[in-house]
């Protein structure tokens, strides 16, 4: 196996909202929705980011500016270069001619936009629900609409779309129609609730864990009790895999490997 690392020029920087940016790279990669890359400026750190778009000649990654490292990245301009490793990990399943329900919360939305495009290419009918804390944090709304999908938007404060959570909207939809497949990305507590509410419908979710090597050797992102490596066997997991993970929805590990327990729901 060879590591896939390259140094690429940022072709474009798109400001999704005040706190979210997308980098576009003019570089052909072979990738499916759900996969991620490790992005670094080789100065301030390196983090995993989901691929949010990928066509024959370019790809993009979307990131929320939350800390020191993403803060530094947000200062980068078209023409600046970064180190990219990947793409890594598993991809969402793309069926053909099925009814698909996409549910995304916050930063989980961008990879689902990539997924929606691939689903439509294969003649699937797509319903999308996206949830945010508040309207100013919404992202990818225009992008979804370009693919012909009008996402149901939910915000905690009702400042955009309807007031409520992704789960509220999902339950309403499930009362009216039964999709063949449900996809979810977002905070883990939300993912757990989507799975619990999915009522026998096949479901795939995108799991996040602290990552270091991203090539399956350091054990940092391995989930208990079976040692499932999110960087290799994840980040996209189906119900059966999640069912084997006692760690899911309970805790994750910090940089030292110590357990950090989740407290309550945010979405």
């Amino acid at each position: 196996m060879k590591e896939k690392r390259f140094t690429l020029k940022i072709m474009d920087v798109i400001y999704e909202n005040e706190k979210t940016i997308t980098f576009i790279f003019k570089h052909k990669i072979k990738s499916g929705p759900g996969q991620f890359i490790m992005l670094s400026d080789l100065e301030n750190g390196e983090k995993p980011f989901s691929i949010s778009s990928c066509d024959g000649s370019s790809f993009g990654v979307t990131m929320k500016i939350v800390g020191e490292f993403t803060g530094k990245l947000s200062a980068l301009k078209p023409g600046d270069m970064v180190s990219i490793r990947g793409p890594y990990g598993s991809t969402f399943t793309i069926p053909e001619g099925k009814r698909c329900l996409i549910t995304g919360g916050g930063c989980g939305v961008p990879p689902l936009f990539f997924l929606a495009g691939r689903l439509i290419e294969r003649n699937n009918t797509v319903t999308a629900v996206t949830g945010f804390k508040t309207g100013s944090e919404a992202m990818c709304v225009n992008e979804f609409e370009k693919t012909g999908i009008r996402p149901v938007i939910m915000t905690d404060d009702g400042s955009l779309g309807a007031r409520g959570t992704v789960l509220d909207a999902m339950r309403d939809i499930l009362k009216k129609e039964r999709p063949d497949m449900i996809y979810a990305a977002g905070p883990e507590i939300m993912l757990k609730k989507v799975m619990d509410a999915s009522d026998g419908i096949p479901c795939e979710i995108l799991v996040e864990r602290y990552m270091k090597c991203a090539i399956g050797i350091c054990g940092q992102c391995a989930m208990d009790p079976i040692g499932l490596r999110v960087c290799v066997e994840g980040p996209v997991l189906n119900k059966r895999a999640v069912g084997l993970l006692s760690e899911f929805g309970a805790y994750r590990r910090d940089a030292s490997g110590a357990k950090e327990f989740f407290c309550g729901a945010t979405h």
């Binding site: 060879k2 590591e3 690392r5 490790m38 670094s40 080789l42 750190g45 390196e46 983090k47 180190s83 490793r85 990552m211 270091k212 090597c213 991203a214 090539i215 050797i217 350091c218 940092q220 590990r253 910090d254 940089a255 030292s256 490997g257 110590a258 357990k259």
Partner: peptide, 27 residues
């Protein structure tokens, strides 16, 4: 407990790889 070194912590080359995890461990 030790958080270890900042990322990137691994890099590959033709003959192998280099790593500097920095002894991260929960104690």
């Amino acid at each position: 407990p030790r958080k270890g070194h900042n990322n990137p912590v691994t890099a590959c080359f033709e003959g192998g790889m280099i790593n500097a995890m920095g002894l991260c461990n929960p104690g």
